[in-house]
Amino acid sequence: MSNDDKLIEGHEYDGIQELDNPLPKWWLMTFYATIVFAIGYFAYYQIFDGPTSQEELNADLAEIQSNQPEVSTSTDSSEIDVQALLANSDAMKIGEEAFGQFCIACHGQKGEGTIGPNLTDKYWMHSKGDLTGILVAIRDGFPQKGMPPWGQVIPPEKHAPLAAYVISLKGTNPPNAKAPQGNPIE
C-alpha cells in the first residue's frame, strides 16, 4: 500500500476493507473518449448523412468492378485452335488440374459421370460437345439442370484448356461409366 492510500472508515465486510482511491485518470479519460466516439459515430451514421450499409456495399462493389481489367469472357471459340490446345501438354496439364479441382465432384475422376453426366461418351444434353458448347457450360452452367456456373470461380485463362481437356476425354471408355444422357452427337 502506498502512503496516499486511505481506508474508508466503516467499510469492512467479512474482513475485506475498501480504499478511498479516486478513479484512475487514464481510465476516466478512456471512458470519456469512448463516449465522445460513440456520440460522433452515432450522429454521423444515423443523424447526418453518413452512408448506409447498402450504399457502402454498392460503392465497394463499384470500386472492385472499376479495377477489373477487361477480360474476354467471350465463348466465341472461332479464334481458339482446339487441335493446338490438345497438342499442348502445358495447356492439357492446366485443364486436367482444373478438372481435378472443380469437376470430378460431379463428373467423376475420369469424367465417367456420377452426379453429373458422363463426359466421355458421345451423348450431350445441352450442346454439341464442341468447344463453344463446353465453354458456355463452364461459364454459365445450366442451373435448372443442376450444373452451376463456374465462370466466377475458375480463372478465365483456364476455361479454354479445361474445355479442351473435356474434349480429350471423349471415347476414353472409363470404368463405371454412367448411362448415356442427352442426344448422340456424331
Partner: peptide
C-alpha cells in the same frame, strides 16, 4: 480474501 488486502477503489 486470498491476499488479505483492501479493495483498491470503492469509487471505481
Amino acid at each position: 480474501k486470498a491476499v488479505n488486502r483492501p479493495v483498491y477503489s470503492y469509487k471505481l
